[in-house]
Amino acid sequence: MTPRPDNILCPTEAGLYCPPGDFHIDPLRPVPRALITHGHSDHARPGHGAVMATRQTLDIMAIRHGEDFAASRQAATGPTRIGGVTVSFHPAGHVLGSAQILITPDRGPRILVSGDYCRTPNPTCLPWEPVACDVFITEATFGLPVFHHPDPLVEAGRLLASMAEFPDRPHLVGAYALGKAQRMIALARAAGHDAPIAIHGALQPLCDYHVAQGIGLGPLVPASDPGGARLILAPPSAFASPWVQRFRDPVLAYASGWMTVRARARSRGIELPLVISDHADWPALTATIRELAPQEVWITHGAEDGLLRWCELNAIPARPLRLVGYEDEPE
């Protein structure tokens, strides 16, 4: 008898668990063996026995959690046999080192865990790769029709236009330390900003790692001594701390897909909302399901009900996983 998908991968309180391989994917609590899709801290937690991930994700976890973040680690370098399944890692286009994980059993459906993914070109990581599968597990962070993300280079152009309009006001951009900050810097460079960019100290280690990986970010200076730098990047939490008071009359900006919702921008006191996301928007989510044409779709962390309804209307078997604990990168 061919195993059902639930016999190969199933949701548990600790996260997705693969019984024939005896491992979890992006577990929510310490487990004996974890496969990690990417380095954001809602997916990559410390304290596991053994961790398998891309080499870059392992490096990022060490930067964020210390070299002893797991008892042992293994870099994913190709198809690997674990128990009764073969696993392989494929680029997700989300952040540096991010991967989709394909589980291929000896018999039964191939299950693709997408983690977080983005199909918009991103100069700071490998592009998303389509992977044939029978069951596709998709995120639904922006799983509602309202979320249509604009061209990120156009949004970077809006930032530079604001800097030209208000030359005497420093522009502070809130951006997550892993992925968004480096992408924002790369977009500003692509839009024509060649001057030094000041960065909050919390961004420095991961910016240094991106540069070491061959990703050019141009001249960066510490925000503690910005000199003449008029563009400053910081984690969003800095906007609610005394740190921000060192800047006179700043233009507060925030780079996030959530800036589509103007009420969120207003509630944060954001003057310049920049709709720049490292997740798939509604058109990309639905296009990906159509293109992969899986036999079944499982939906997790996000607007599950909206994407579930779309699948129902398009006669695509789907189910919500109702996993809790996955959110945007904590601030």
Rank of each mutant, 00 (worst) to 15 (best):
C207D: 02
C207H: 09
G218I: 08
S41F: 03
D116N: 15
A315I: 07
H40G: 02
Y254W: 15
W282H: 06
S224D: 11
V275L: 08
R246G: 14
W243V: 05
I270K: 05
I111Q: 02
L144K: 07
A287Q: 09
R262A: 05
G93L: 03
G325S: 02
A284R: 11
L313I: 09
A181F: 13
R107T: 14
W128Q: 05
R33I: 08
S98V: 00
F69K: 00
V275A: 13
L307E: 14
E304C: 01
N122V: 03
L172N: 09
G49D: 06
L323H: 03
L274I: 12
H24V: 10
L9Y: 03
H210G: 04
A287I: 08
E13V: 02
R309G: 03
G257N: 09
L102K: 05
A240H: 12
A293L: 09
R45W: 04
A132Q: 10
L252S: 06
T288I: 07
V146I: 10
G214Q: 01
F69Q: 04
T86P: 06
P283N: 02
G201L: 07
G15K: 06
W298F: 11
S162P: 08
L203W: 00
G93P: 04
H90N: 14
R262V: 00
L9I: 12
D151K: 09
C10L: 13
R169P: 06
G216P: 01
I103V: 12
G143E: 02
R262H: 02
E165A: 15
P32A: 12
G93T: 11
G115S: 04
D328E: 14
A44K: 05
H40L: 11
A62C: 10
P32E: 10
S256A: 15
G228W: 10
R264G: 05
G15D: 01
I63M: 13
I137D: 07
S41Q: 11
A284Y: 01
G216S: 08
L206S: 02
P123M: 04
L187W: 02
A191F: 06
H40D: 07
A53K: 09
R319K: 14
G201V: 08
G306L: 11
G84M: 06
A198Q: 09
R248K: 15
S277W: 03
V51R: 03
G214K: 03
T260P: 06
D281A: 01
H171E: 01
D168E: 14
A253P: 11
P123Y: 04
I197F: 00
L178R: 03
C311D: 06
P226T: 02
A195M: 14
A195I: 13
V154R: 11
P317Q: 06
D59A: 14
V113Y: 14
L321W: 07
L233K: 02
D305F: 10
Y117E: 08
A303F: 15
E13W: 00
W243H: 07
T86M: 08
P79A: 05
S98D: 00
C133S: 05
S98H: 02
V113R: 05
L112F: 01
G218H: 08
V85D: 05
P235D: 10
H90W: 06
S267C: 08
E67F: 04
P170T: 13
F166Q: 14
A280G: 03
G78T: 06
L172I: 15
L217F: 02
S162D: 15
R110Y: 00
S88N: 14
V173M: 11
